[in-house]
């Protein structure tokens, strides 16, 4: 389904850039850039600045987030960092520490 999958048990230290969507279930440290959707699954650990079209977070994310369309923090997500997107939703049960910028 997704063109790029970082599976659980895989650690990437460095820069990831893709033109398609990406699913992260493992660990990413560095920088993550995607033109399409980015999904950080429950159990994943991302310590990186994330840039993408849209972002869904169910796991742990430390870093600044910029999305063209939307950012959804699901229940169980742990996010530390600033979020910048046109639309941002934070589900009940999500932990979040940082600022939100929705281009008001």
């Amino acid at each position: 389904m997704a063109s790029t999958v970082i599976g659980a048990g895989i650690t990437i230290e460095g820069e990831i850039a893709t033109d398609e969507d990406i699913v992260v279930a493992g660990t990413v440290r560095g920088k993550l850039t995607a033109k399409d959707s980015v999904t950080i699954e429950h159990g994943a650990t991302v310590e990186a600045d994330v840039v993408g079209g849209s972002l869904v977070v169910g796991g742990a994310l430390t870093g600044n987030v910029t999305a063209q369309e939307r950012v959804d923090l699901q229940s169980g997500a742990r996010v530390i960092g600033n979020v910048k997107a046109a639309r941002v939703t934070i589900a009940d049960g999500a932990q979040f520490k940082g600022s939100v910028d929705m281009d008001v």
Binding site: S3, T4, V5, I6, G7, E15, A17, E20, V23, G26
Partner: peptide, 13 residues
């Protein structure tokens, strides 16, 4: 999906 890791065609690491 999470059991297999795939670096897609347009992905650069």
């Amino acid at each position: 999906m999470s059991s297999v890791t795939v670096i897609g065609r347009t992905t650069r690491i």
